Computed example of a mutant assay.
Amino acid sequence: MPPTSVELIRDHGLGELLDHAVFDLSGIAAPQSVARQQVHTALARCASTEQIDDAVLVTDELVGNALQHGYGVVSMTLDVYEKGATVSVLDRGADISAIPTAPTVDEVGNAENEGGRGLYLVAQFSTAWTVQAVEGGKAVVAVFNLTGGAL
């Protein structure tokens, strides 16, 4: 069973919650663009440019995956902590067993393997990630350790 987001936050020592925001992404024309902008804005005061770029890339992948595989994105939750942040994307897909582990470098480099690159990016550019069942679907959560940034 994958770790819960609470376990990931605790295990990575993100500290106290400083800011919590939920964004409704259902039914809007460009949910990926909105999600990227919200993450960029929220982290601009507390993270390095590289850390912001990593979080924006992962957010784009999570929302894109929800649109493509999760029967539509519903919302994004963004939590900023003393030493990090989490991005959680909720979609309507209920089957969390269908979420594979991130592929290996060899699998990503295989020309016959057309899927799985998004989760590879999520695994490479976040500190940790997990998927969990929630009411109405599933949430994919990425954790970012922002120590050494502008905090």
Results as ranks from 00 to 15, higher is better:
L57S: 11
T49A: 15
D54C: 08
C46H: 13
A42C: 04
Q51N: 03
P31Y: 00
H12G: 14
I9L: 11
Q38G: 09
R45F: 15
A44S: 14
L14K: 08
R10S: 15
H12F: 12
Q38F: 09
L25A: 00
P3Q: 08
A42V: 08
L57Q: 12
A55M: 12
E7M: 10
S26W: 02
F23D: 05
L43A: 14
G27P: 07
T49W: 04
H20Q: 10
S5V: 06
D54I: 01
E7G: 10
T49Q: 09
L57M: 13
Q38C: 14
Q51A: 10
A35Y: 01
D19M: 12
G15S: 08
D11W: 05
L25T: 03
D53R: 06
L25F: 01
Q38T: 12
L17H: 14
G13Q: 13
Q51P: 00
L57G: 07
D11Q: 03
A29N: 00
L43G: 07
P3R: 09
V39L: 04
R36E: 10
G13M: 10
L18S: 05
D24E: 07
I28M: 01
D11E: 11
P31F: 01
D53G: 05
V56Q: 07
E16I: 13
G27N: 02
I28R: 01
E50C: 02
D11H: 05
F23A: 04
I52Y: 04
A30Q: 02
H20D: 12
H12Q: 12
E7W: 03
E16Y: 14
L8W: 04
P31V: 00
D53Y: 11
A29P: 00
I28P: 00
F23H: 08
A21C: 04
I52H: 08
D24F: 00
F23V: 04
L18Q: 13
P3W: 02
R36N: 12
Q37F: 11
H40T: 14
A44Y: 08
Q51C: 05
